[in-house]
């Protein structure tokens, strides 16, 4: 049975999330780059892997004291190592979350949902992309919606994150027929259709990593 504590994320939970994110990005880097070679500049996998590796080494070197410091450290590591739009956008996601949670040492599901919503709002504002533009927003926005609803309905966090991961994957797959309206892929116009968006794919990995790391904690 789950307890109330199951619906909180500790600093260790967040570290486990980001470590798993790195593991999955590293494992799927080649595929991400392959997706990016179809509609972009063929570097999304290598760029993201370099970024998540930097996050891993920062978190391994020093364990941040609170959730805000952890998310900020992660955001700055991504900004300074990923390069390109992904660095600024993933950086913004984490920096906005950090700003929202402040010095909290634990995040309950409502706070986490609100923080994730702030992060995604930051990404939307920075990249000026909307749902349906064939970007990471297509995976992130459904995640926000599921987390918000689940928090309001009192759904345990692990269950909410499983649904969120499914929603992110569905959003990712929905990018296939879309014509890109933002980023490098938008230069291709109609030729960007029939391809999975690499940014939505890495964003779905981010959400899946949190669902998986939390499910593992519950075992």
């Amino acid at each position: 049975m789950r307890t109330l504590e199951d619906s909180r994320l500790t600093v260790d939970d967040l570290i486990a999330w980001l470590m798993r994110f790195d593991e999955q990005i590293t494992r799927q880097a080649e595929r991400l780059t392959e997706l990016d070679s179809a509609i972009g500049d063929a570097d999304h996998g290598t760029n993201m892997a370099r970024g998540t590796a930097a996050v891993r080494s920062r978190l391994s070197a020093a364990r941040p004291d609170d959730a805000g410091a952890l998310l900020k450290s992660c955001g700055m590591a991504l900004v300074s190592t990923v390069g390109g739009a992904s660095g600024s956008l993933y950086g913004t996601l984490f920096l906005e979350m950090a700003r929202r949670v402040g010095a909290a040492s634990e995040l309950d599901r409502t706070v986490f949902a609100a923080a994730f919503r702030s992060g995604v709002a930051g990404v939307v504002a920075r990249g000026r992309a909307e749902l349906g533009d064939k970007t990471m927003v297509d995976a992130l926005q459904p995640t926000v919606d599921v987390l918000d609803t689940a928090a309001a309905d009192g759904v345990p966090l692990a269950d909410a994150l499983r649904s969120a991961a499914d929603a992110a994957a569905a959003g990712r797959d929905a990018t296939i027929p879309l014509v890109a309206r933002k980023g490098r892929a938008s230069y291709l116009g109609d030729r960007s259709a029939d391809h999975l968006d690499p940014g939505a794919t890495s964003a779905a990995i981010l959400v899946q990593a949190l669902a998986d790391s939390l499910a593992e904690r519950g075992r």
Binding site: N47, R50, M76, V79, S80, V82, G83, G84, G87, S88
Partner: peptide, 11 residues
């Protein structure tokens, strides 16, 4: 550039 590659670093 970012770490000797094409890219930009907001920091």
């Amino acid at each position: 550039g970012v770490e000797g590659r094409f890219g930009t670093d907001a920091a």
